[in-house]
């Protein structure tokens, strides 16, 4: 290697390492702080190393119930979004309804409004008129409404890229449309559905505003809201407990990613021949 090229590589690697470190630091803090008895905003190796923060957090009934609530709302939302988006996207992709392209685009346009804060007042009024205030169902339905258009859009694109001849060959071989869907189309679409499931889970799991507005009782609040119970009356965070709770709060999402990439892999099948 010539000297200038070598120098260039060293400079590039150093720069990349610095940028990497800048991103890694908060993550390291996030991993170390929960095990530190003293509240520190700087990065420090826990000394002494302790699990007492976790003890306190696990002893907090409200915070633990909130994690369970988050799970109910996220899983409920994911099932609704996954099932509805799959069926809707499949229909939009395979049928020849006139104007089906426009339908998806208009829905997509409005969806950014629905889950945005601008729509909070109407959503509040609708949910309250439906008598669903302070229920998990209210949160699940609102998220489903907000996430569905994007999920449909992504999935429809994915299904469009899968040759129709899969289902056609199944039907010619004697399968009904329903059989062709479940035996042939669904398994081929599955990688796309997995993407939707992970994406909507992460979205619901991390959301604060919608549950905060639609829920009343502390027994129904999800973790994103419960985090505020680790703030003192004066509004300053109790860093030690907050860090421990945050770590627990982020584990299900990490676990979901690991499970999905182990079980399905984030890959698309596509056709065998172009």
């Amino acid at each position: 290697m010539k000297f200038p090229a070598l120098f260039g590589r060293i400079a590039f690697s150093t720069l990349a390492a610095l940028i990497g470190a800048a991103f890694a630091l908060p993550l390291l803090w996030f991993l170390f702080a929960p095990f530190n008895a003293r509240a520190e905003l700087g990065l420090a190796i826990p000394d002494p190393f302790t699990l007492s923060n976790f003890n306190t957090v696990f002893g907090n009934g409200f915070a633990m119930q909130a994690l369970w609530n988050s799970l109910i709302q996220a899983v409920g939302g994911v099932i609704l979004v996954g099932a509805a988006a799959t069926l809707a996207a499949y229909a939009l992709s395979r049928s020849s309804i006139p104007g089906k392209g426009a339908v998806t685009y208009i829905l997509l346009l409005f969806s950014s409004v629905v889950s945005g804060s601008a729509a909070m007042v109407p959503i509040f009024l609708i949910i309250s008129a439906a008598g669903l205030m302070d229920t998990h169902l209210a949160v699940i339905l609102t998220f489903a409404g907000g996430l569905l258009p994007t999920a449909m859009f992504i999935l429809r694109d994915f299904i469009d890229s899968i040759p129709k001849s899969y289902e056609e060959s199944a039907m010619v071989a004697g399968a009904s449309p329903v059989q062709a869907f479940f035996d042939v189309a669904l398994p081929v679409i599955r990688p796309g559905i997995v993407v939707i499931v992970v994406w909507s889970f992460v979205n619901i799991w991390g959301s604060f505003l919608i549950p905060f507005i639609l829920l009343r009782s502390s027994a129904n609040m999800p973790a994103a809201v419960a985090i505020y119970s680790f703030y003192s009356e004066a509004g300053t965070p109790v860093v030690t407990l907050l860090a421990a709770y945050s770590l627990i709060y982020s584990l299900p999402v990490v676990a979901l990613y690991l499970f999905v990439s182990w079980r399905f892999g984030f890959r698309f099948f596509g056709g065998i021949k172009a």
Partner: peptide, 19 residues
């Protein structure tokens, strides 16, 4: 419907089920 015609068909792209 195709399923009621008792036919067999070979497609240009083969349409083998990848899974």
């Amino acid at each position: 419907h195709p399923k009621d015609r008792n036919i067999a068909m070979v497609f240009q792209d083969y349409a083998l089920y990848p899974h």
